[in-house]
Design a protein around this nucleic acid. Structure first.
Lengths: 248, 248
DNA sequence: ACAAAAGTGTTTTTTATACACCCATGC
DNA sequence: GCATGGGTGTATAAAAAACACTTTTGT
């Protein structure tokens, strides 16, 4: 830098040095297909450069007057209709040059991505087919290569989902109001993996904690003894907030 | 990321809708004063409006070509000299109007804050007194009211620190290379609280895990039997990565 | 009757918790 | 020698893990 202080050259007010940003929101949207025991992620196919025809996470740029979370919900709403969901912020990616557009229109505008992760109920999630862009659920174990750094974001979201499930009641945001203990168990096995607990122990432990109440209503799913429908009692769960590993 | 929604990017009419951002980085910097059994947060006194004379988290706006993490490190380096530290991203706050500056210069520029939290070793952290702005450690239990939404950020950072400590080896980024088991125990008690484990059990459990190796070197701290200095063995810790509650 | 799914109980092993007690040093 | 902090061991309680068994349905 030849002994020159860039601040003095560029602008004495210092202001010029600051980066200008557009802020994007990218969603990692998960769903659990219990029928096939698969964890799914929602992906959209890009229709333009950069990364034309590549799959990517559904995202959008934040508009004036719009909060980050609003933008996340808007993206979600543009892609699927869904009743029950859980959504939380994941991580913010913002190293320079992460978005190829920065190179193209080099007005010095940076693109920053605030990622969110969502878990939605598979059974009542309806994809909105907008005849232009592809949009589809992909099993997490066989996702295609994604545009930008979305691969990294997806992996990060997956890790977070597993952790969340272990100590917080997100599952109940995504299950119907009444569910069988087996529904709950299926959800856990497909997200966490097969080897976290045997069904009867999982059952016994959760029931002992006392925040699942038996409605007495029975449902029959084909052959076999009918199962009781349970409800999640948020009040009874309160003491377990902030306690780790409630569900495992 | 940014904008998978084609229309908004290309179409100049929609372009107007996008918000323009300046991105700030705010740091929650913690340190543990084991001598007084206190958890401390580093605060700076603002010298300008808005919130003139109020304490706030040390922060800065992101410059051109600078990554978020770089900005976080820069802020830190401007305030303290420190050898060992742990730093990670916390959360991104970006609802409209969160920063009073948005109202003042209403050119529509939004301010978004990406917060980081850091844990630094108290003993070798030297505050950089720049004769203009106040800068000081505050016990977490008696912090003043902070500017902007920094109160919220601080609380969030505190929660995260406790959680981190429980399952990840951040403590060793902040302890000297060799430390006594009591040093480690003190660190945990002041961050987590008194009632997480009795010293001898804490000791037994950690040693059994096998990633702390006794160097054989003894140190005497005043009266009493001299203590062994231990080293953290990162390789031996590897199997415990991603396993919850290693330290509790 | 029998397969299939739900639900209960029992046994064994492993951890957690609460202490009591021995060890090495400074004063 | 005795107070002080370091370090070990033990006894009890609780929880996790494995798995055998009973119950209730559909076919």
């Amino acid at each position: 830098m030849a002994g020159t202080n860039p601040e003095q050259i560029v602008n004495p007010l210092n202001q010029k040095l600051l980066a200008d940003f557009k802020v994007g929101v990218d969603n990692v949207i998960f769903s659990v297909d219990t029928a096939h025991n698969r964890l799914l992620a929602l992906l959209v196919k890009r229709q333009e450069d950069p990364f034309c025809h590549h799959w990517s996470l559904p995202g959008t740029l934040v508009r004036q007057g719009e909060s980050l979370e609003d933008a996340a919900y808007r993206t979600l709403a543009e892609k699927i209709k869904v009743k029950n969901l859980y959504l939380e912020q994941l991580y913010t990616f913002g190293r320079p040059k992460r978005n190829a557009r920065e190179a193209v229109n080099s007005y010095g505008v940076r693109y920053l991505s605030v990622s969110y992760f969502a878990l939605v109920r598979f059974e009542d999630a309806q994809l909105i087919a907008d005849n232009v862009s592809g949009i589809a659920w992909h099993p997490i174990k066989e996702t295609p290569l994604l545009a930008f750094d979305h691969q990294e974001i997806l992996a990060y979201g997956h890790r977070r989902l597993r952790n969340k499930l272990e100590y917080s009641p997100v599952a109940f945001d995504v299950l119907p109001q009444m569910f069988t203990l087996n529904d709950l168990y299926q959800l856990y096995t497909t997200v966490i993996g097969e080897n976290f607990s045997d069904y009867s122990n999982f059952r016994a432990r959760l029931l002992k904690l006392g925040f699942l109440s038996d409605t007495g209503i029975k449902v029959s799913r084909g052959a076999g003894r009918p199962a009781s429908l349970y409800k999640f009692d948020a009040e009874a769960f309160a003491p377990f907030k902030d306690k780790p590993l409630v569900f495992i």
